[in-house]
C-alpha cells in the first residue's frame, strides 16, 4: 500500500461461524472523501464485514487497511483514524450521555478541555442536552443511535464506519443524522455505512456495494450500480427476492 491510500481497503476478508460461511473473501476499496453505502439484506454479512474491518472481529483470512494502516498489524495507528458505531453492541449505558462522551474522549487520549467543549456541542446539536442526567440505558432507540454517533465523531476521525445508523430511528432523528454525516463528508471525511434502506442510500451515497450471501455482488459509484433503473430494483434482482404471494396466507383475510 503506497501512494494514494484508500480510506478503507479490504482484501479477501473471510469469516466462518460454526461451519457456516458468514463472509467469503470480500474485497472493497473505499476512496477517501467518498460517502459509501454497504447494502445488503438481513444476514448478508454486513455487520461481520464491518466488524472485521474495524478490528472488532478477527478475520479467518484477509486484511483491512485504514488509510494505509493495517488494522490487524498496526491497530493503534488504524484505530486512531477510525470512528466506529457498531450495531448490536451495547454502549456503556449506565452512564449519562455526557459521561459517556467524556469517557470515550479521554479513552482516545484527548485533552479534557477539548472533550468538554466538543461534548457540549455534540449534545446540543443532536438534541440530547435535554436528557440531562438520564442514563443512556433509559434513552429511546433513536437517542441511543445519536449518542453512539456522537461517541464515534468525538475525536474527529478521518474515516467513519457506521453499522445500520438509520435502523430504528424516527424521521426527525434520521434527518439530523443525515445532515451531520453530509457535513462531515463535505469536510473531507469518509463515511462507510451499512443499511437496507434504499432511499437513504440513494440520497446520500456517492458509492455503493451490494453484499449478499457473504460476497460482494455489485460495486461502484451509485450511477454505475443503478444504471437507468432504481436502486431498489437492482437490489431485489441481485439479492433474488420473491414478490407477491397469491394462494398462501389466505387465512390472514377473513
Amino acid at each position: 500500500m503506497t501512494g494514494e491510500h484508500s480510506a478503507l481497503a479490504l482484501r479477501g476478508l473471510a469469516k466462518r461461524f460454526d461451519g457456516t460461511i458468514a463472509v467469503a473473501s470480500v474485497d472493497l476499496d473505499v476512496p477517501a472523501g467518498s460517502f459509501y453505502g454497504l447494502l445488503g439484506p438481513n444476514g448478508a454479512g454486513k455487520t461481520t464485514t464491518l466488524s472485521m474491518a474495524v478490528g472488532l472481529l478477527r478475520p479467518d483470512a484477509g486484511s483491512a487497511w485504514v488509510l494505509g494502516h493495517d488494522v490487524w498489524r498496526d491497530p493503534v495507528a488504524a484505530k486512531r483514524l477510525l470512528g466506529v458505531m457498531p450495531d448490536g453492541m451495547r454502549l456503556f449505558d449506565r452512564l449519562t450521555g455526557a459521561e459517556l462522551l467524556a469517557y470515550n474522549g479521554l479513552l482516545r487520549g484527548m485533552e479534557p478541555a477539548v472533550v468538554d467543549q466538543r461534548a457540549a456541542e455534540l449534545l446540543d446539536v443532536l438534541a440530547l442536552g435535554d436528557a440531562g442526567r438520564t442514563l443512556v440505558v433509559d434513552y429511546s432507540a433513536g437517542m441511543k443511535k445519536k449518542i453512539g454517533l456522537a461517541c464515534a465523531l468525538l475525536h474527529g476521525p478521518r474515516v467513519l464506519v457506521l453499522d445500520e445508523p438509520f435502523e430504528a430511528v424516527d424521521p426527525v432523528s434520521a434527518a439530523l443524522i443525515r445532515d451531520i454525516l453530509t457535513r462531515y463528508a463535505a469536510g473531507g471525511g469518509t463515511v462507510v455505512f451499512s443499511s437496507h434502506v434504499m432511499e437513504v442510500v440513494e440520497r446520500l451515497c456517492s458509492h455503493v456495494a451490494i453484499l449478499a450471501g457473504g460476497a460482494i455482488k455489485r460495486v461502484g459509484t451509485i450511477g454505475e450500480v443503478r444504471g437507468d433503473r432504481s436502486l431498489e430494483q437492482v437490489f431485489v434482482e441481485v439479492v433474488g427476492g420473491r414478490t407477491a404471494t397469491g394462494e398462501e396466507l389466505s387465512w390472514l383475510s377473513r
Binding site: 449519562t96 455526557a98 459521561e99 479521554l106 479513552l107 479534557p112 472533550v115 440531562g132 433509559d138
Partner: peptide, 30 residues
C-alpha cells in the same frame, strides 16, 4: 433512573465520581 437534575460542570467533571478524588483526567482516569 429519575432524570436527575443539576448536571454541574463539563462532561469530564461529570464522569468522575467523588470517590476517584483528584485522579488525573486522562485515559487511565477515565
Amino acid at each position: 433512573t429519575p432524570a436527575r437534575r443539576g448536571a454541574t460542570g463539563g462532561a469530564v467533571a461529570q464522569l468522575f465520581p467523588r470517590i476517584t478524588g483528584r485522579m488525573r483526567r486522562d485515559r487511565f482516569g477515565a
